[in-house]
């Protein structure tokens, strides 16, 4: 899952980025409003964390322009401003959630994850497809109750696919959502990770879970159930 953080306080941004990365999310950071708006409009993010007081373009403007372009990426607002009036205004303008500074880092992460799930039409943090269960909080994967040890990237691929059951996910989409801009894009990296993931999943079960559709991408097979 890929997150965009737009925050001009560098130290705060560093901390948030580090924390989000530690929980397995991919994060891009923009330090001013114009960069932030530009990145947000790429449409590759699963959620956006937006500060309000930004140089260049304010958070409100970024949000407004985003919604005007019919982009439905979930947005969480970080605000140090007082008053409920501005919160109501923000929620009405299309924000999905807000946190006031100083906030709790754990709460921020939980809210971002909840926003991602909601954005994909899921409400539970535990996702199941066939006999595979993914716990998005603890980032653990089990098949038939047997824990499977995955690398962070393999986990992210599985998590992303399980959020989009039966849909064909292209290599490009996977790249966009799994890596930030600092990463060199090589599509064979994805292929290598997918093959490792298949091998690890098949070690405990027999049914192949990830189908490859030539030139189109990947698809999770089997019924997905959300508990």
């Amino acid at each position: 899952m890929r997150i965009l953080l737009v925050e001009d306080e560098l130290r705060l941004a560093e901390n948030i980025v580090a924390a989000l990365r530690e929980t397995g999310l991919v994060v891009d950071h923009a330090a001013d409003g114009e960069d932030g708006a530009h990145l947000a409009e790429q449409g590759v993010y699963d959620a956006i964390i937006l500060d309000l007081m930004l140089p260049g373009k304010s958070g409100q403007e970024i949000l407004r322009d985003l919604r005007r372009r019919q982009m439905n990426t979930p947005v969480l607002i970080l605000t140090a401003q007082e008053g409920t009036a501005s919160i109501i205004e923000l929620l009405n303008a299309g924000a999905d959630d807000y946190l006031s500074k100083p906030f709790d880092l754990g709460e921020l992460i939980a809210r971002v994850k909840a926003l991602i799930r909601r954005g994909k039409g899921v409400s539970n943090s535990k996702l199941t497809v066939a006999d595979v269960e993914v716990d998005t909080i603890h980032q653990t994967v089990t098949r038939n109750g047997e824990p499977i040890d995955l690398s962070p990237t393999e986990y992210r691929i599985l998590e992303y696919l399980i959020h989009r059951p039966r849909a064909v996910v292209s290599k490009r989409e996977l790249l966009e959502h799994l890596y930030d801009f600092a990463w060199e894009h090589h599509s064979n990296v994805v292929e290598a990770h997918i093959s490792n993931l298949r091998r690890k999943l098949n070690a405990v079960g027999d049914e192949p879970l990830i189908a490859t559709l030539r030139h189109r991408g990947y698809r999770l097979t089997g019924d997905s159930r959300r508990e």
Binding site: E9, I16, A18, A19, E22, Q81, F103, D104, L105
Partner: peptide, 17 residues
């Protein structure tokens, strides 16, 4: 208030991280 909250947010997030 904005300034102080931001500074407090930074300290808090550093420690929580």
């Amino acid at each position: 208030a904005h300034e102080l909250k931001t500074d407090v947010a930074i300290v808090k997030s550093s420690l929580q991280l």
